[in-house]
Amino acid sequence: MYHNSTNNQQHTESQSEGRFSRPSIPSRINHERRARKVFFFITLTPIILLVGIIIALVIRTWPILEKYPLKELLLGTVWKPQKGLFGFFPFISGTLWVTLVGIIIAVPPCIFTAIYLSEYARQITRTIAKPLLDLLAAIPSVVYGVWGLVAIVPLIGNHISPFLGKYLGFIPLFSSENPTGYSILAGGIVLAVMIAPFIISIIFEVLSTVPKGVREANLALGATRWQTVHAVVLPKVIPGIGAGIVLGATRALGETMAVLMVAGNVVQVPVSIFDAAYPLPALIANNYGEMMSIPLYDAALMGAALLLLIVILLFNIISNLILKGILKRSWG
């Protein structure tokens, strides 16, 4: 029986080959199969890379994780690598401060600009705005740093900080004891401009998922444009806007050079927006030179990178999933 059936199969195969194929086709199909396999393995690169980055950083961080409890590392405020004290808290709080200030400055104008472009602007304005925003996004972070150094730091040091310090200085948030201008606010302003084109384009994309008909339904009731945006468009896209802002925040969290150049880099837990801050990426970039000369220093710096990576991955995955859901709905 068994023998018979195999025979049969062979028979049909050879028959089908005889009927349907010219000599070149089997080799072309084999070729296709082989090439497909190669392509498949190349396509795995992103996943391998992602896993590889995580594993490499975990391995490099491991020595310090073994030696100190996590809580001590994350909440410790003393950073003296020579004495074996690795308290990350000043850097963590510096990162959060700069990012938060950047987001707070960026979000209102970004939302309004995106709404303007999506709901009010004429087609020609949109056509002009797109490449300009792309340009803003293309400027390298070092150039942003130069701009911050030349334009923003003196502005804060000479004008904003003395002014706000004089009138609002009694609030710790605005007290200005640092006259240089290298500050959280400087980092925040530079970050805000850097992430603006990014946030604007995400919000714009999210807004364009709202069907035209819904807007028109409300306009037909005699609504003004803003009433339509407020009552009909925004409620539908709040999660998308939130995801866009979080994605913008992850950009800000990891930004290195521009912030490094304007934030002051003093190891302290800041309390005022005019204080200097020392964010995690700046810590890594500034000290990579000597990290092999002090025990555990390299593990500590790689740990900083790992910490950054984990936080960013978390935010990134959540907001990407939210955005995927929203943007897909519009395709369907």
Partner: peptide
């Protein structure tokens, strides 16, 4: 538009 209402081709209920 308040004085002149519109019933469109497809219903678009508000969200």
């Amino acid at each position: 538009r308040k004085t002149i209402g519109l019933l469109s081709q497809r219903p678009y209920p508000l969200p």
